[in-house]
């Protein structure tokens, strides 16, 4: 377990900023308890200071997980967000997409969101913007990237992809052993 280097922090922050924008500051500078980012076996964990200090005394091979796993670094140094970060993303998301009940299952099986399943979308969402996907009952289901801006979606046919799938809560079952 170690703190992130500057390049790693940059990679993590740019990814997170794509979803929550300036709210990222609320993750770094928290009022309730100091939190920090820690890297352990290529995975980035968002941990409170107290549990981080407890974790220091655990040897590296024995430490399986701590805090909230935000994602992992690929071998080529790119950062990939995991669905485990969804709680924080949903809390601070700038742009949101709500999908209809008949679209929930297809999305939870890892498919993209098509226009027919689109319930609501934050207005003025630009193209290629990170969005958090909610069910109509405001339950966060996952996140993705918009394929078109809100204005452009009007003209599309119902089968056109609106949001590219990136992660969904179905991964808790599908990728149970590698997720955390």
């Amino acid at each position: 377990m170690r703190p992130l280097t500057e390049d790693e922090s940059k990679a993590v922050f740019t990814k997170l900023a794509n979803y929550i924008g300036k709210n990222l500051i609320h993750l770094i500078d928290r009022q309730d308890e100091p939190y920090c980012f820690r890297l352990q076996k290529d995975r980035v964990y968002y941990v409170s200071e107290s549990s981080m200090r407890l974790g220091i005394s655990v040897a590296r091979p024995n430490l399986v997980s701590l805090g909230t796993c935000f994602g992992k670094f690929s071998k080529s140094g790119k950062f990939k967000l995991h669905v485990t970060a969804l709680d924080y993303l949903a809390q601070y998301a700038k742009y949101k997409v709500w999908i209809k009940p008949n679209g929930e299952m297809p999305f939870l099986y890892g498919n993209h969101v098509v226009k027919a399943h689109l319930g609501r979308i934050t207005e003025d969402t630009p193209e290629h913007q990170g969005v958090v996907v909610f069910s109509m009952k405001d339950i966060p289901l996952g996140f993705g990237v918009t394929a078109r801006s809100t204005v452009d979606t009007r003209k599309l046919d119902p089968t056109a992809i609106i949001v590219f799938h990136q992660a969904d809560v179905g991964e808790y079952l599908r990728d149970e052993d590698t997720l955390f």
Partner: peptide, 15 residues
């Protein structure tokens, strides 16, 4: 690398 047990507030400032 930076030490793991560095002060978290310093780390937040750097971030």
């Amino acid at each position: 690398f930076d030490p793991t047990e560095k002060s978290v507030s310093d780390e937040a400032k750097a971030s």
